[in-house]
């Protein structure tokens, strides 16, 4: 489970795999870039737990239906979610390679 920032919209991607038929399926959901919210997937797929938390931190997507967890991978919540395209690591005092 992950998300993609397309600029004008966000896309949440669920990668599903059926162990008995051995088929996988991609389910995508489009969300607006401002204040995105999505229902939790853990009620149907408990395996989505950590993946959902990771996605929420990295893209600033609020997950409805679950209590607020502590941060999983990030240490603190900065101004911008890091995997959004608006987050520029080049502007943070590091030299770029190009």
């Amino acid at each position: 489970m992950t998300a993609v920032d397309y600029g004008t919209y966000l896309e949440v991607v669920y990668i599903l795999y059926n162990l008995s038929t051995r088929q996988h399926e991609l389910v995508t959901v489009k969300l607006p870039p401002e204040n995105p919210e999505i229902e939790t997937a853990t009620k149907i797929f408990p395996a989505a737990d950590w993946f959902e938390r990771e996605m929420s931190e990295m893209f600033g997507i609020k997950i409805r239906g679950r209590k607020t967890d502590r941060l999983l991978l990030k240490e603190w919540n900065g101004a911008e979610p890091p995997l959004r395209k608006s987050f520029k690591w080049q502007n943070r005092g590091y030299k770029t390679l190009e």
Partner: peptide
């Protein structure tokens, strides 16, 4: 509790050539 070694590899790769 994880995340002590988080360095944002996905973001780094999005900003680098395929060869890197």
């Amino acid at each position: 509790r994880i995340g002590f070694l988080h360095r944002g590899v996905e973001k780094l790769m999005e900003n680098r050539m395929y060869m890197q």
